[in-house]
C-alpha cells in the first residue's frame, strides 16, 4: 500500500513567537522554520511501516510557499519516496478545510491505503485537518495515535485520550493523526540528504485540484496575551509554607 503524509512548514518549536506591532499577525521574517513536529512523527511512522513491509511507497505533500520545498526535502531525506508541493504565494495561509480538500483530491488520484497526519500544527493549533480529510473521504479516523498496527485490511490505533488510552480498529483506507508518544523521529543522515535531492518533487497549485482556498475565517486582530508579572523568590521552605498558608489552601 501507499502512505500519504501531509507535512506543514511552521515556526520552529524552539522559537518564541512575537506578535507584530500592527496587530496583523505573528512576525515570521527571519525566523527559523521547520517541519511541524507532529508531522515528523508521521513521516517516521510511515517509514517504519515501510520497513516492516506493510507499505511500498511514501508520498509526502505540503501546501505552502515555495520554501515548503525544504520541508519536503527533509521528509525525503528521512526516507519518504516522492513529494508534491502545492504552492501558494508567500504569506498566504491555507485553512484546514481547504488543505483537507486538496489532500482529498490528491488521495483520489493516488489511492493511499493510509494517510498519516500530525494531530495539530503548532502555529494555528487547529487540530482539524485529519478529521476533516476523513470526513471528506468518508473513511475512518484514528486521531492522537500512540501506537499504530497495520494488519491486512485494517489498522488498529491506540489513541491518547483525556482519561488514558483507547483502542479502535479501522477499516483501510484510513486516516491517522499522530500524538507525541507514537515514536521518536530519526535524523536524516548526510548521504540520505544528498540522495533526497534527486528524489522526485512535483510542483502543483490549488487550482490544479480545483480547490478554492479563499479563507472562511477572517482574522480581525492578533494581540499579545496578557503578560504575567514575575512574582517573588522566597528564601526557604519556611517562608514558602507561610505564603502557601496565607493563600488558604493548607
Amino acid at each position: 500500500m501507499k502512505i500519504l503524509v501531509p507535512v506543514k512548514r511552521v515556526i520552529d518549536y524552539n522559537v518564541k513567537p512575537r506578535v507584530k506591532a500592527d496587530g496583523t499577525g505573528v512576525d515570521l521574517a527571519n525566523v527559523k522554520m521547520s517541519m511541524n513536529p507532529f508531522d515528523e512523527i508521521a513521516v517516521e511512522e510511515a517509514i517504519r511501516l515501510k520497513e516492516q513491509g506493510k507499505a511500498e511507497e511514501i508520498l509526502v505533500v505540503s501546501i505552502g510557499p515555495a520554501k515548503a520545498q525544504e520541508t519536503l526535502r527533509t521528509a525525503l531525506a528521512m526516507g519518504a519516496d516522492r513529494a508534491i508541493l502545492v504552492q501558494v504565494d508567500d504569506g498566504t495561509e491555507v485553512e484546514p478545510l481547504a488543505v483537507a480538500k486538496i489532500l482529498k483530491a490528491i488521495a483520489d488520484e493516488e489511492q493511499p491505503g493510509l494517510v498519516l497526519l500530525g494531530k495539530q500544527a503548532i502555529d494555528d493549533d487547529s487540530n482539524q485537518t485529519g478529521q476533516m480529510l476523513a470526513a471528506l473521504m468518508a473513511r475512518p479516523q484514528g486521531t492522537f495515535a500512540n501506537t499504530v498496527e497495520v494488519d491486512g485490511d485494517s489498522v488498529t490505533v491506540k489513541r491518547e485520550i483525556d482519561g488514558g488510552l483507547e483502542t479502535v480498529k479501522l477499516a483501510l483506507p484510513a486516516i491517522v493523526t499522530t500524538d507525541l508518544r507514537l515514536n521518536e523521529p530519526r535524523y536524516a543522515s548526510l548521504p540520505n540528504i544528498m540522495k533526497a535531492k534527486k528524489k522526485p518533487l512535483d510542483n502543483k497549485t490549488p487550482a490544479d485540484y480545483g480547490v478554492d482556498t479563499a479563507p472562511r475565517i477572517k482574522t480581525l486582530k492578533v494581540a499579545e496575551p496578557p503578560v504575567r508579572q514575575a512574582g517573588i523568590k522566597v528564601a526557604d521552605v519556611d517562608e514558602l509554607v507561610a505564603k502557601i498558608k496565607a493563600l488558604g489552601i493548607a
Binding site: N127, Q128, Q131, A135, F144, D162, R216
Partner: peptide, 23 residues
C-alpha cells in the same frame, strides 16, 4: 475542547463545509 470534542467537531465541520473555530 476535550479529546472527544476535538475528534468529532472537525468531522462535522467538513461534512457541513464549514471552517471550525478551535478552542
Amino acid at each position: 475542547a476535550t479529546t472527544t470534542g476535538k475528534n468529532i467537531a472537525p468531522r462535522v465541520a467538513a461534512l457541513l463545509d464549514v471552517m471550525q473555530i478551535s478552542d
